[in-house]
Design a protein around this nucleic acid. Structure first.
Lengths: 231, 231
DNA sequence: CAGTATCCAGTTGGATACTG
DNA sequence: CAGTATCCAACTGGATACTG
């Protein structure tokens, strides 16, 4: 159990449960619908499995998460208390996107970005048959093996690959990891990124036009940003 | 600067700033109106001054707090970004009071409780002249020196004393630290506490009747609690 | 798949004392 | 008043390997 603040204040009691490192991100993943240990890991890849396990158990003890055995598999769910954290997590995200707008190099992660993008493809908008989108990152900082990613969309399935799956590519996006991350977050609009050359498209003309409608961006991308009064 | 989660997710970026131990409580105190270092300390007495100083500087670097020199004195204020955390802090408090209803012995603190109560006296409701309220805690766990507290209300000033200020006492509340804390938090209603004998009043009859209107309770006391379905 | 086990380096933060 | 300085014990959490 986390260390007490020695205060009866409800904010303090809440933060005892919620302010340990990683905890809020685990809750976020549960809200995104991850149910299994390794599914959760994908959302917090930099967290060690031992620590994830520890946090899950803590959250169970604190009444935020329930652990069930579903046949051989083990599943995690938010309790009612956990579900009531949703508006708080959303508000934290909104606050974060409004006020923490400087991303460091260490915040950029091609794997996480492609995973997020793949979860938010608008399947209604993508044509039938197979569509392959390829992202190419020109950043030197990105490991050579993580410079190209493929999204393979067919029917209602979307797969992410960090290797060439061998299919014809419908459209290729040449960009930097930072630029695509900023577009995903809504820090830069898609047209602005294309106009300024941060993002270049190649491939089928119809696909170049339709691509912005296939990718739905982060649910927080539309958050209004603070109006900065020039000094 | 706090350690990065290595994620561009806005929730992660927000939590980098906010999830360090004590941070949210410092922000809460700033929202309550504390402006000076030692005023802040009163709200987080179990935090060492070194750590409070460190957190304040971190919050300044992260754009949540501004530090001003006001003549000889130094003041801290929330920035616009900091003020936008208010709904989050309130929501955390609401969540905390709904779901973390078990208070440990270590959460009870007579000093903090009397300080909170003194900040929330309804001066309009208290008669003119001097009114003295005495709280007496019968708990063995409470240090002998912290078993009796006096609130001295005169005009628009309220003073808290942990020693007998020597005035005639208008009304005395005999209770336990836990019971008064629960009443303050709204876990138990005042009438219920009196009825069950958790709280006994002595002194002027008018004052016994009026006391619940003099003390305003925590702003979260009215939070609706989850309906627990009996198992 | 769903974790545990172990180890250890590094950090955190509590206690205490001190300063301009 | 508004902090710094110092010390150190304890804990945290990262890395890695392993298990039923």
């Amino acid at each position: 159990m986390p260390t007490s603040y020695g205060q009866f204040c409800p904010v303090a009691k809440a933060m005892e449960v919620l302010d340990e490192r990683w905890t809020m991100l685990v809750i976020r993943e549960l809200m995104m619908g991850s149910r299994h240990f390794n599914a959760l890991r994908r959302g917090v890849p930099k967290m060690s499995p031992a620590l994830l396990s520890k946090r899950l158990h803590m959250l169970v003890r604190c009444g935020v998460v329930e652990r069930h055995r579903d046949g051989a598999r083990i599943t995690y769910h938010l309790t009612e208390a956990g579900r009531e954290l949703e508006p708080i997590v959303v508000a934290l995200g909104r606050w974060g996107i409004r006020w923490i707008d400087q991303l460091g190099e260490e915040d950029l992660d091609p794997h996480l970005l492609c995973w997020d993008i793949h979860r938010n493809i608008d399947l209604e908008a993508v044509p039938d048959g197979r569509t392959v989108i390829c992202f190419r990152f020109s950043d030197n900082a990105v490991a050579a093996s993580a410079r190209a990613w493929w999204l393979v969309i067919s029917g209602d399935a979307v797969d992410v690959c960090d290797f060439d799956p061998g299919h014809d590519v419908t459209v290729t996006v040449d960009t930097t990891l930072r630029a695509l991350t900023q577009v995903w977050r809504g820090d830069i609009s898609w047209p602005a990124a294309v106009r300024s050359g941060l993002l270049t498209l190649r491939g089928e003309t119809y696909a170049q036009r339709a691509l912005p409608r296939w990718l739905k961006l982060s649910s927080l991308a539309g958050t209004p940003r603070p109006v900065r009064v020039p000094a």
